[in-house]
């Protein structure tokens, strides 16, 4: 029983950064802005949050700064992708590389080392339980529901989807889909920002170089798996998190009397990813937004 509780708690904690990143990515991609830069935005916000907390000692200020830095990163990414009419994927890769270079440089200037921010004392991290693991998880679910509802019921949601599927229809109405994409990029960055803060200030105690560890890309896989829809995307994130929690609980344990080799256990998440993706693409489902990664000339 304890093991079940431990498993559920672990799944919840591991899912939070994935949920924020994937749902942020969803906003961006539904507007037609293909977003492989989720990893970079996770890192920016994790770093800015931890750096502000380390210098000011105020976690709430750090949360604000982290989320805003994610939004700014998303906005810049949007402008670069949309107005240069470049391939969003290429810009996204460049963005991730840029972040990987800039953070250690800034980090060195601020703290005298490229490896990360100093360790944050418990008072300067997000205070648990008010802003602990479960609050962030709840916020992520709320975001999921808001997107689920907002994409169907609000003018904002309809325009966002139109920018991704039929941008010409927006142009006819006199709305510039390019700016919708840019602001969707910024909003996406803000959402991803919560994921970054979760990494460095809720689950962690400071920024450590490359601490996102590929979660931005796993989130992207969840988004594709979820068919660019909020609820299935969230479920996909939970499946990935559960697979990861499983492998951690199984490590070093005896299973049916056998000592399972760790290396075998550790590929469980990857097997799940491949398996689920294969299942998904074997069946029918919603495909990508029709005009994703296509430049528009209004």
């Amino acid at each position: 029983m304890d093991l079940v509780v431990a498993f559920l708690e672990s799944t919840i904690r591991l899912s939070v950064p994935l949920l924020f990143a994937a749902l942020g990515g969803l906003i961006s991609e539904r507007s037609g802005l293909a977003n492989v830069a989720l990893e970079g935005k996770l890192l920016i916000s994790a770093f800015v949050g931890a750096a502000v907390a380390a210098t000011t000692g105020n976690p709430w200020l750090a949360l604000t700064a982290g989320v805003l830095s994610g939004a700014l990163g998303g906005w810049i990414f949007g402008v670069l992708s949309v107005f240069t009419k470049a391939d969003h994927i290429v810009v996204g890769i460049a963005f991730n590389m840029l972040v990987a270079g800039i953070i250690p440089t800034v980090c060195r200037a601020m703290f005298g080392g490229t490896g990360g921010t100093p360790q944050l004392a418990i008072e300067t991290r997000m205070p648990a339980p008010i802003a602990g693991d479960f609050t962030f998880f709840g916020a992520a679910l709320l975001l999921c529901w808001m997107l689920h509802w907002g994409l169907r019921e609000t003018k904002w949601g309809l325009r966002l989807k139109a920018a991704g599927d039929q941008p010409v229809a927006l142009i006819v109405q006199g709305v510039n889909p390019n700016w919708i994409r840019v602001w969707a990029g910024a909003l996406a960055g803000a959402c991803v920002g919560f994921g970054g803060i979760d990494l460095s200030m809720v689950q962690g105690s400071g920024y450590i170089r490359d601490m996102a560890g590929g979660r931005g890309f796993i989130a992207l896989a969840a988004l594709i798996l979820g068919g660019w829809r909020p609820v299935p995307t969230a479920i996909a994130c939970l499946v990935f998190a559960a697979a990861d929690a499983t492998q951690m609980l199984l490590q070093g344990q005896k299973l049916f009397g056998f000592n399972v080799p760790n290396s075998l256990v550790q590929i469980v998440p990857y097997l799940v990813t491949i398996g689920v993706l294969a299942l998904r693409f074997g069946g029918k489902g919603m495909l990508a937004p029709k005009a994703i990664n296509q430049p528009i000339n209004p």
Binding site: Q203, G204, I208, G213, M248, L249
Partner: peptide, 23 residues
């Protein structure tokens, strides 16, 4: 016992380190 991962990124993944410890 538990291991963070099987690639060199396993040295810089405190979230997983914490998760293994909590487990």
């Amino acid at each position: 016992n538990g291991f963070v991962g099987i690639t060199s990124s396993a040295w810089a993944n405190p979230t997983r380190g914490r998760e293994l410890a909590l487990s």
